[in-house]
Design a protein around this nucleic acid. Sequence first.
DNA 1: TCCTACAATGGACTGCGTCTAAGTCAAGAT
DNA 2: ATCTTGACTTAGACGCAGTCCATTGTAGGA
Lengths: 139, 139
Amino acid sequence: MSDLLERLRERGWRLTAQRRVVAEVLDGDHVHLTADEVHARAARRLPEISRATVYNTLGEMVSIGEVIEVATDGRAKRYDPNAHRAHQHLVCAGCGTIRDVHPTGDPLAALPDTERFGFAVSAVEVTYRGLCPDCRSAG
Amino acid sequence: MSDLLERLRERGWRLTAQRRVVAEVLDGDHVHLTADEVHARAARRLPEISRATVYNTLGEMVSIGEVIEVATDGRAKRYDPNAHRAHQHLVCAGCGTIRDVHPTGDPLAALPDTERFGFAVSAVEVTYRGLCPDCRSAG
DNA sequence: TCCTACAATGGACTGCGTCTAAGTCAAGAT
DNA sequence: ATCTTGACTTAGACGCAGTCCATTGTAGGA
């Protein structure tokens, strides 16, 4: 039983087979999957699971902060189950893979008050872009 | 005549009425428009301009580095003509407006070699998120 | 076991963007 | 000034990611 499922149960979630499978897919693997990839893996265990349910479940997990949604350019969003630890992302411009990285310092502190224009700034995302080793050698 | 058009001409671009209008729309106003907003404004001057042309022209400007494409979550991409000066973005979580901001320090330097995993890191985007003054008071 | 509110289904639908085939036109050649 | 040609534009079909909705199913309490 995963920690993720424990935490969901504590929030009073009804524990359905679909939610269990989606949570297991996210929990098992620490790559960053798209919603369709999550659906495909979930369907291996529970063939009749629908896309809408996967979207709903992912959306709920995101809204309670168990999972982070990573929007990469024009492509599909990816879902990052590593929400408990502050981190940023390194995206390959060639193939779209994402790695978690941990820069030094606090990026929020780099934005002076004079540059905040009255906004209540609550979060900062840093995305590093480049080519992964495979895409570098593939040219 | 805008600087932008000058630079495009120097690259051997055929100067069509459509491209001129798209460049003028971007050049005139320094808010960050979506492709459809660019199309709407361009169509005020050149009613028969097509969406495809606006997308093509924007894409070409992005690929030669005259304009920056800003992907904001699930919504439409926005286009930022302020490509000549390094800057980052401050996005309102309520209404989606974007402001250019200038944080202190070099965010690329914050990523140590041990966190680069063999990637050739070439760029970094920093997106600050929060609520703008209007959305704060609107609750 | 039965009830009921919550969850899942699947198919239609929307928004954003891309593609294609055919027509048009800017700009160099004559 | 006119011709020529290949780059550009057009309209609309298409595709993907994601949402919505009416219906059906079911977890978990009484």
